[in-house]
Design a protein around this nucleic acid. Structure first.
Lengths: 190, 190
DNA sequence: ACCTGAACACCGTTCAAGT
DNA sequence: ACCTGAACACCGTTCAAGT
């Protein structure tokens, strides 16, 4: 029933440490085991009781959601860092570097796939922030005639979602680069 | 331990009827409930005992696999039906009509997403058959200069996988058409 | 040869007791 | 204020008994 995001409260030092450990263990175990990763394992790996995991993250989905939220934050930082370069190149760089960031993060990929079950409320704010930064780059690119008329942030999100799906589909392969290449330049000959 | 695909054996009339009912119930319930659809519900909906479901499909994944296999068969038929028309148009038609076929089939989409868990052996043969028919169309399209050099069946599969992911992501929306449009003609301006 | 459903196993989640 | 882990609930799967 507590709706205040845990990371905004002031946590006792040990609680904050536990929270970080649980997140790190989650990333680690989801990457190694995929959806099979169990809550007890994550607790054990983090060196806490199962109850502590549930105190910080009320459901398994909530844990995944937080992992996604942190990545979205990272995407925004990536986008900000190229906000002033040539728009076409900026857009490509955002996509490529964001994709590279989550390349080994099967937890993120997993969460993105089963997105109906994800508690998106927690991510919405981060997504809105991302939309603003990326939206600016897209506008510039469209204005410069470098990206097709009518391309939107939602299209961008759809492309990135496809990249994520490709990564999940063939873990460890670089197929997603081919995928991004096709998305950027199209299947049909010029 | 029985490795003979169930559909190739001669089944007793009632068993065959049960098998079809279970498949139909699976399609129906996965479409309505997504991954939450339970094996008991599917059994009840099909009017059989839970043991009968497991006699025909040894795991939940096996049931989903068979649903996928049947769709792949359908894709091959679609591809065959346009084997002789203008290759560029043929390829677009295959993609569009295949996508439309699975638009409401959340079970198929679900199975495609969590594909590591899927028992792909059952589908491989159908996929190989599809590769042959679609590969022929792609070759003709590339030769005609209508599709970019180096485009392969695996690229085709990747695109279709992305379409499926988009459908699953936003059930009931037509976003996948936009997605396919981007894939065919690219994000970057010509 | 096939069907049935009670029983089992596994894993996400809760909650009473502890510091 | 936070932690712990035994106990519970749910659902995929099995198997002994039935036709």
């Amino acid at each position: 029933m507590n709706v205040i995001p845990a990371e905004q409260r002031t946590l006792r030092a040990d609680a904050r440490r536990n929270r970080e450990r649980i997140l790190a263990s989650g990333r680690d175990l989801f990457a190694r085991l995929g959806p099979e990763a169990q809550m007890d394992e994550i607790a054990a790996h983090a060196g806490v009781g199962i109850g502590t995991v549930y105190r910080h993250f009320p459901t398994k989905e909530a844990l995944l959601t937080e992992m996604v939220r942190v990545r979205f934050q990272e995407f925004s930082e990536i986008a900000l860092s190229v906000d002033d370069v040539d728009p076409r190149e900026a857009l490509e760089t955002i996509m490529r570097r964001s994709a590279e960031a989550v390349e080994g993060d099967a937890g993120f990929q997993l969460a993105m796939m089963g997105s109906n079950e994800l508690e998106w409320e927690g991510v919405e704010q981060q997504k809105a922030a991302l939309a603003e930064v990326v939206g600016r780059v897209i506008s510039r690119a469209v204005a410069a005639g470098a990206v097709r008329e009518g391309f939107t942030f939602e299209d961008f999100a759809m492309v990135m979602c496809g990249v994520t799906a490709t990564m999940y589909y063939k873990p460890g392969s670089a197929d997603w680069r081919r995928y991004l290449e096709l998305m950027l330049h199209g299947v049909c000959a010029p």
